[in-house]
């Protein structure tokens, strides 16, 4: 069963369709990376899942139940959220902020100490939040989301404003949540490298449309290496390869062949030369994740 399912989810603001027919499938107990350039519709989608924005069309299911105005709050009792910037009462201490959320969720006070420990804020808990750094506020927001050990965490750009050490810390924490606490985490980012290091599953959104959704390993498979051959008679060589039953792609002036063992490649090249191929370049090409992302989204924004 998927933890979150959306069907043909749309959101229109004025005449602009910000989210178009989104069909999310977020499996249980995984870190689902929701990747997309800024303005792609990530936050809007997450807000719709949390009921903070109303879908123009489509449906949302969380824990297998269709979310509507009546059951929204009971369903969200098992969801922790951190949307965009962290929410806090600046004039209150970190502990008091968490006390308010835990009281609203009907949780015991010991929960506060537990989550403060997880985000390593226990020594700063009595300090006013207005005196916290942005990173500390972000960690406090995360602590609030973790209160009550929710089954699902929805985190919108949780590493925003953190220093490299903080990013690493939060990343490791998110990574550990499915295994240690049985949680499902939906985390958004505009940074591919970040999602690559955190997520098991990935959904790529571009201009409001979901352009890729699968496990990260599937995406990685697309980054397999290729052998690029450039000749002075590409057409003839292409015909030769066809006759030999070798699969290839034509890319600009190159013929891309699947990567094979060195010995097999040597034999292949030898055969082509013997048959009159005028080879001038042989290169090893590897498509990295960023190339794939660019290919999928057609944009270089925010990489």
């Amino acid at each position: 069963m998927n933890i979150i399912t959306t069907n043909s989810l749309c959101k229109q603001y004025g005449t602009a369709l910000r989210v178009k027919d989104l069909d999310l499938r977020i499996p249980k107990q995984v870190v689902y990376g929701f990747l997309g350039p800024n303005g792609a519709g990530k936050s809007t989608t997450m807000k719709m899942i949390l009921g903070l924005a109303k879908p123009t069309k489509g449906s949302i299911q969380v824990f297998g139940k269709e979310v509507n105005a009546k059951n929204r709050i009971p369903i969200l009792k098992h969801v922790g959220a951190l949307i965009e910037s962290p929410s806090y009462y600046g004039h209150l201490s970190g502990a008091e902020n968490l006390k308010i959320i835990s009281m609203l969720k009907g949780l015991p006070d010991k929960e506060i100490d537990r989550v403060l420990k997880i985000v390593r804020l226990e020594n700063q808990k009595n300090k006013k939040v207005s005196q916290y750094s942005l990173g500390m506020k972000q960690r406090l927001g995360l602590a609030g989301a973790l209160l009550g050990n929710p089954k699902l965490l929805v985190l919108d750009e949780p590493t925003n404003g953190l220093d490299p050490a903080g990013i690493q810390e939060i990343r490791e924490l998110i990574r550990s949540l499915p295994e240690e606490y049985g949680m499902t985490v939906m985390v958004s980012s505009h940074l591919l490298s970040e999602i690559d290091q955190m997520a098991d599953h990935i959904g790529i959104i571009s201009k409001g449309e979901l352009v890729f959704q699968d496990s990260l390993s599937v995406l990685h498979k697309q980054s397999t290496q290729k052998i690029a051959i450039r000749t002075l008679n590409n057409q003839m060589v292409a015909k030769m390869l066809q006759e030999q039953g070798v699969s290839f792609q034509v890319q600009e002036d190159y013929l891309l062949l699947p990567k094979i063992a060195d010995q097999a490649l040597f034999e292949q090249i030898k055969t082509l030369l013997e048959k009159g191929a005028k080879i001038i370049r042989i290169e090893e090409r590897s498509k990295n994740l960023e190339d794939i992302f660019l290919e999928i989204t057609g944009t270089a924004v925010s990489l």
């Binding site: 903070l52 709050i73 009792k77 949307i83 600046g90």
Partner: peptide, 17 residues
């Protein structure tokens, strides 16, 4: 104002109607 200053509404509306 306490809700606006710390952008608390987006959090509160997920825990309380």
């Amino acid at each position: 104002d306490v809700e606006h200053k710390g952008e608390m509404l987006k959090l509160l509306y997920t825990v309380i109607p």
